[in-house]
Amino acid sequence: MPDASPIGIFIAGLLTLGIFSFLYKDNPVYKVCEAIFIGVSAAYWAVEYFYSALYRKFWLGVFPPAGSGVEADLLLWGGAILGALMLCRMIPKINWLSRWPLAFIVGATAGLYMMLFFVSNAMKQIESTMQPLIQDSLLETLGSFTIAIGTITGLIYFFFSKEHKGIFGGAAKVGIWVLMVTFGASFGYTVMSRMSLLIGRMDFLFNSWATNFGQMF
């Protein structure tokens, strides 16, 4: 926050300390920070959605400004009607109507994700795994075998309708180890980046905030 006001930095520092106090135990200062956070952020997103979705996407879509040359998108009314049905929830007699927009969203999400993941996850990953097993060096060859066998045994672990015993069970066991190596790798990889988050916050407290504090008083 290079251009933040001294008061802004001062408040930011207090709130930072308030959140950190939770590490010791739940306390009134944390509760105040939490309460402010909930109130302010809920309103923040309410306003953000109001202007970005309702005003910019819907309103300017169906009533484009004169002279902009954009045609009114009448299909957008569908969204508004579904949205209005959502509000029927507040009227006891017709609150069952609110299930319609919900049904719409659930259906649309199911359809969208089915295709998205089929292409980007299933097809793409299968395609990327089709690599020559024998490579230029022994190490690379070992790597190719690891990827192919690891992927296949990992998939075997996920089998639901076949009991994990015998050779199949052995393969599933290798599969879960492959998954555990993967989790360990992500875990180890993330530790440092999380530390840097804390360092960033400490830097704010000890530099920006402390300096500002000195200047204010």
Partner: peptide
């Protein structure tokens, strides 16, 4: 990271796709 991790990630991603379908 480049080999074993990749294999696990792929198994998870393919599984997720099938689960979602």
């Amino acid at each position: 990271l480049a080999k074993a991790n990749l294999a696990g990630q792929r198994a998870i991603l393919i599984g997720i796709a099938l689960g979602i379908i």
